[in-house]
C-alpha cells in the first residue's frame, strides 16, 4: 500500500492583523492551515510574544518573576525600555492594574499619561490592557485609546459588559481590539458579531477566549481555541477568523505551582525552574491550539517559547 500524504483542504483563512508602526510593526495571523502544518497551507506570520509590564510595581507577582524586574519595575517607562532594549522584546503589553478600584483606583487621566510616557520611550508595538474591571476599563481604555492615537496599538479587553464604549474608542483612534469572552466558543462568536455590528472591521479584531494555566483548566482553553480555529478554517466561519490571544502570564503566575516554595512542597522541586516551566508549557500548549499572540512575564520562559517557535516554523 503506497503512502499518500493525508492533506486537509481548508476553506477559510485566519485574518491578518498588523500592529505598531514603522519598521518594528508586526503582523499576526494570515494562515490557512492548522497551527504549524506547513505541508498543507501557508503560514506567513510566526506567533508573537509580548512581554508584560504594569503601571505599578508588581507587588502581586510572585518573587520568581518579580525579582527579574526589581530594578526597573518602579516605573513603567524604565520597565518598558528594559524589555525592549535588554530583553529584546518584540512587543510590550502594558497592564493598567493600578486603575482597579481595589488597587490604587488611579484615574483614566493618570493612565493616559502613563501610556503617553511609555509610547514615547519605545518603538516596539504596544498592547494596552485594562485592569479587568468592567466599568472602570470602559473609561480607562477610552482615555488610553485617545492617548495612543496614531500608534496603531492593540487595546483590550472589550467584554460583553463594556464593549460598546471600548469599541467606539478603538474605532475613533484606529487601534486593534481584543474581544474577550469566558471559555465558550459561542460567547466568543457572539461578542465578535456584536462588535462588528457596530461597524468595527473584523480584520482589526483579536479573540481572547480566556486563558487558563496548566493544571487549572488549560484543557478548556485548549479545546475552545482548537474549535475556534477549526470553525474559521474548515467551515469558513468569518466570525471565527480573527487571530487568537493567549494572555498566559497573569493566569500562570498565581497558581500554587508557581508560588509555593520548595520548603513547602519538596516533592515539586525548585521553584524557579518550576515556575518558568509552568509558563513556558502553558504557552506552548496554547500555540499548538492556535494562539497567534502570547502575553508572558518571565524572560526565561519567553526565551524557551521563542526557541520552540523557531523549531516549529
Amino acid at each position: 500500500m503506497a503512502y499518500v500524504v493525508p492533506k486537509e483542504s481548508y476553506n477559510g483563512k485566519v485574518l491578518n492583523v498588523d500592529f505598531g508602526k514603522g519598521d518594528k510593526a508586526l503582523v499576526i495571523g494570515g494562515e490557512n492551515a492548522l497551527p504549524f502544518l506547513s505541508f498543507e497551507g501557508e503560514l506567513p506570520n510566526r506567533p508573537v510574544i509580548a512581554c508584560e509590564i504594569q503601571d505599578t510595581p508588581p507587588t502581586d507577582w510572585p518573587e520568581t518573576v518579580r525579582n527579574v524586574y526589581k530594578d526597573v519595575s518602579g516605573d513603567p517607562v524604565t520597565w518598558a525600555k528594559y524589555c525592549q532594549n535588554d530583553l529584546k522584546a518584540k512587543a510590550i503589553a502594558l497592564r493598567l492594574v493600578s486603575t482597579h478600584p481595589d488597587r490604587d483606583n488611579r484615574s483614566a487621566e493618570d493612565a493616559a499619561k502613563t501610556i503617553k510616557d511609555v509610547l514615547s520611550a519605545i518603538n516596539v508595538p504596544l498592547i494596552i490592557l485594562g485592569s479587568n474591571h468592567i466599568e472602570k476599563d470602559a473609561s480607562v481604555l477610552v482615555a488610553a485609546a485617545e492617548a495612543a492615537s496614531g500608534y496603531n496599538c492593540i487595546i483590550g479587553k472589550a467584554q460583553e459588559g463594556n464593549y460598546k464604549t471600548i469599541v467606539a474608542a478603538a474605532l475613533a483612534h484606529n487601534h486593534k481590539l481584543i474581544a474577550m469572552s469566558e471559555l465558550d466558543i459561542n460567547l466568543a462568536k457572539q461578542l465578535n458579531i456584536l462588535i462588528t455590528q457596530m461597524g468595527f472591521d473584523k480584520e482589526k479584531l483579536i479573540t481572547d477566549p480566556m486563558c487558563s494555566a496548566l493544571g487549572y483548566g488549560l484543557e478548556y482553553t485548549y479545546s475552545v481555541m482548537e474549535r475556534i480555529r477549526l470553525a474559521g478554517l474548515m467551515q469558513n466561519d468569518a466570525t471565527m477568523q480573527p487571530p487568537i490571544l493567549g494572555d498566559v502570564g497573569m493566569y500562570v503566575w498565581k497558581v500554587k505551582e508557581t508560588v509555593a516554595s520548595e520548603a513547602d512542597v519538596a516533592e515539586w522541586g525548585p521553584l524557579e525552574e518550576r515556575g518558568t516551566a509552568w509558563e513556558a508549557l502553558t504557552a506552548t500548549a496554547m500555540l499548538i491550539a492556535g494562539t497567534n499572540l502570547l502575553i508572558m512575564r518571565h524572560p526565561k520562559a519567553i526565551s524557551i517559547v521563542e526557541k520552540t517557535i523557531a523549531e516549529l516554523t
Partner: peptide, 29 residues
Amino acid sequence: AFEAAVATVSIAKYASIVVLSSIEKWKDL
C-alpha cells in the same frame, strides 16, 4: 526546560511514548 516544551508538542499531538534525556521533579510535575 526546552526539552519539556518540545515534549509538550508531542504530548498534545498524538505521541504514545515521549523519550526525554532527564527527569527532574519540577519537570515531571
